[in-house]
Nucleic acid binder design. Structure first.
Lengths: 240, 240
DNA sequence: CACACAAATATTGTATACGATATTGTGGAC
DNA sequence: GTCCACAATATCGTATACAATATTTGTGTG
């Protein structure tokens, strides 16, 4: 994901496919991003035929992509029913944040130990983008940038396996927020990201880890973690 | 994996399939277990047609199973070349153990906080099995039991997401051991498992976490983590 | 009017045929 | 004798046709 073109959103309409026939990897990312960006809401039924029409490919590629999405727990595959955007339960939500506190807490401490100029640039660049998104009032962009900040930070620890775990957990968090968000202000405070970066770049690993823990707990606490009913949406309209 | 029949090893020979045609889930587990148990060695080429013949199903089911195995990093899918049992690099090996220290360290501490009779039974039952395997001199069984102990312990923390991460990491560790094991005594000391259980069941979370850290570091240090060449093996003979 | 049951429809599950790509083997030129 | 080009083979990638299953709709009866 770190080497994604990103940004563009031209999708082949109906039968006319985007010039180079999409491979399953691109399809995977398109759907993944649509879910993380809250364009596809939890519970949405991802019908294979519809996706075939949209991307202009056979069902095989779609199935490959769906299979990967399911292994990342972003969608749920129900036997003989099909694929649905995952609807994490309340318990699952708490579990996700628990895991994030453990892993991201560790990674942020490790990142502080290996701070260098490249890291400084990476973090500051991202904070810039995040501020710009907020200034522009682009809600979808803010959501994406917020999650991406945690990803960028996780990558700085140079522990690719744990970073990939974090990647999955961030995606699941996005689903959780879509379901359980309350009316409270922001889900991911800009100031905390700024402070977190400063602590990491200043080499204060323990403080950074502690702040990350509080930060994630704060996000979790701002949610309304009580059972909800499903939210579906029109797939055609969102991807087309 | 925790609800597996386990133990039996009748596999349909050639064309004659085992009475109920295997579903992709069973195929997945068969291959997964064969790899974790060192019956399939790193680098082995898993050809789709061969697997079709062995399990008596079409390529679709095989591909579904292989896809899942790949997402767990147990096999590697090379475009237009096929599936190979993964051969973790030295860096990857160190990463796996680093991640295990972080996650299992946390889980063991958490398990100590929630100790109860059921946990005591689960851990002791498993240690019994492990001792029996050692006494019987069944090397393959010892390997499996050793890994399973860590899995059972991880499950006690009732943090299913992190437990599933551990599950994947244990499988990858098994591959790492297959490649890099040295001539040193045991890879996973029985005494340490015993002591670890005692600390957890005694509610000594910090000591248990510290021991887990040392235990995993010990396993890592007993390996010869330097580049090796691949080890292949006859698929037909192992599965058939 | 509500409910049970059956037909019709929609959707996924599987196998297989065909095409694309990589690997291996062979022959000739230098 | 060695190297390179080219053909032959093996293997995977994809699409599609057909079967199995779940859902919905329609109908009749209490």
């Amino acid at each position: 994901m770190s080497d994604m073109p990103e940004g563009e959103s031209e999708i082949g309409e109906g039968a006319a496919a985007p010039s180079p026939k999409m491979d399953s990897d691109r399809i995977y990312r398109r759907i993944f991003d649509a879910i993380v960006d809250h364009k596809l809401l939890p519970g949405t039924h991802l019908k294979e035929d519809e996706l075939c029409d949209h991307f202009g490919v056979g069902r095989t590629r779609i199935r490959t992509a769906l299979s990967r999405l399911a292994s990342n727990h972003v969608i749920e595959l129900v036997a003989n029913r099909g694929a649905f955007v995952a609807r994490p339960s309340v318990e699952e939500a708490r579990e996700v944040f628990r895991a994030r506190r453990v892993i991201e807490g560790h990674l942020v401490r490790r990142a502080a130990d290996r701070r260098d100029d490249a890291m400084s640039r990476a973090l500051n660049d991202h904070l810039h983008g995040e501020r710009a998104a907020r200034a522009a009032g682009d809600a979808a962009m803010v959501i994406r940038r917020c999650g991406r900040y945690h990803q960028v930070l996780a990558d700085q620890a140079e522990s690719p396996i744990m970073a990939s775990f974090v990647r999955e957990l961030i995606a699941r968090s996005s689903l959780i927020i879509a379901i359980y968000e309350s009316e409270k202000p922001d889900t991911c405070e800009m100031d905390e990201h700024r402070l977190l970066s400063d602590l990491v770049l200043g080499g204060h690993g323990d403080e950074a880890a502690a702040l990350m823990d509080r930060h994630l707990t704060g996000i979790e606490n701002r949610l309304e973690l009580k059972p909800r009913r499903e939210t579906a949406s029109d797939l055609q309209q969102i991807l087309g």
